[in-house]
Design a protein around this nucleic acid. Structure first.
Lengths: 266, 266
DNA sequence: TTCGATTTGTTCGTATGTATT
DNA sequence: TAATACATACGAACAAATCGA
């Protein structure tokens, strides 16, 4: 019976054969769409405030069914690359509130409350990459960089000392005025002023001691144990866009990492 | 045209209306399936080595289409609850190699290589929950517990000092012989001997100093800065099943946390 | 305010390919 | 080889949220 099989479906008569999964390159259609859409986003052509092409448009552009587009988009949603809203459209996830305030901010008060810090900029300077920064940002030693030192206050107390290193060529024109005047997080600032979307970070944790410099600024005794976090933030294509070294007082606050997801209710 | 629409599909004539999404309880069908399947897994009826019901069976049991079952299972795969294998079936993720060795093991050599440790058990004792342990495991202070202290060697050197606290009622019959004779990780041991599937952990990081006890066992000077990790491991239903306090030498190794996923190639 | 168009969300169903047993 | 089970792809229908006329 049936034998109807591939009705017409695609414009071209050949009919794709559905699989032999990847046609020319051995990749399934929905994965190809994921790659292409991600490339679209990384190109910077898409501003985070306006929507991506609709399902229908993508289906037409890639010559696949709506269902295949949805399969790809579902993956991108699960990976926090895009967010979708019924009736509105699909957007880059970079500016979603969850991402801005929660996703890359792992610091909690010890009772589990997430505290939003107040940032004080201690210094802003143009300098040159040391070996460590060059390695992290994919630069050559001596390449021009910006270095920003911030103190983050939680409930009025200094808790985190941040040293942020940025490649000058990536953030050309950065100046202290814009920086301190920003109304958002650093990652939101990168987005709005430079079109850089942080979508992944890698944190490396060590134990450390307060030296004279950090002890004074964090208001602790010399040799107080601190948590050291070295972070590299990546944009699409795993392009490193920020190298940050943090020292954290963990007497009242802590770094939390939930492997396997936060408490789900579903 | 067409007008075929809802052929017969469901036994009852009313035909579900597809949505009004959640019928009685306001939850969509695929989410209900996710919950029910998760409950199935948490009940312990399903051994990790044999497969869950097939798509077809689940579709019949829940009286939904195959596509809806797949939607639910795709979510569970993304959440690392189950793993699926073409031609074999769908399995609890608890025993997947990735989970056993990688997922809950965030320690790396500083060059990025993941090192599998050798475990030496220093002590095994039956004791009673202190306030901290009781709080973490949902016990009353003084409830009977097991306490295991391990040293973890990496490349032959002591790097991590682990104190593991387990509720006696959860692991009744646990003895040191079985423990040291295990061929797998602690979480694999919980699985094989007690049917406990760890699927989520919460780590809390602080800076700390080596005291006399820890300095000796880790082979470092007194007051060496260490990384302190306090972990609670959860089974399904967010039931706490392990409370672990770790002290880590971070001179050659480190704790890594990748927010936003590991490097993807896709 | 209402209404219709747009866009995503959910569900259903079918066909076929591929890996496993 | 045949049966089983998941993977991929196509397509349709309707619900619900959003937005602008």
């Amino acid at each position: 019976m049936k034998a109807k099989s591939r009705k017409k479906s695609r414009a071209n008569g050949r009919g794709r054969k559905t699989s032999h999964p990847g046609k020319e390159d051995g990749v399934s259609l929905y994965k190809r769409i994921k790659i292409d859409v991600t490339r679209m986003l990384s190109s910077g052509d898409i501003s985070p405030q306006d929507p991506l092409p609709t399902e229908k448009q993508l289906a037409a552009r890639f010559e696949v069914s709506i269902g295949t587009v949805r399969r790809a988009m579902d993956d991108l949603v699960a990976e926090h690359i895009v967010v979708r809203q019924q009736g509105r459209g699909t957007f880059l996830a970079a500016l979603s509130p969850e991402r801005m305030l929660n996703r890359f901010w792992p610091y909690f008060r010890q009772d589990g409350v997430r505290v939003i810090p107040i940032v004080q900029t201690l210094s802003f300077e143009e300098t040159r990459a040391d070996a460590e920064t060059a390695e992290a940002l994919g630069l050559r030693k001596g390449d021009p960089t910006y270095r920003i030192v911030n103190v983050l206050l939680m409930s009025g107390n200094p808790v985190i000392l941040d040293e942020i290193n940025l490649a000058k060529k990536t953030y050309s024109g950065l100046n202290e005025e814009d920086l301190v005047a920003r109304e958002t997080t650093m990652y939101g600032f990168y987005q709005s002023h430079f079109g850089i979307n942080v979508f992944r970070v890698l944190d490396r944790m060590h134990g450390a001691l307060a030296n004279e410099w950090s002890a004074e600024r964090l208001g602790v005794e010399l040799n107080t144990p601190l948590l050291s976090v070295v972070r590299i933030a990546y944009a699409f294509g795993n392009r490193p866009v920020e190298f940050r070294k943090s020292l954290i007082r963990t007497d009242a606050y802590e770094y939390r990492n939930a492997i396997g997801g936060e408490i789900r209710v579903d």
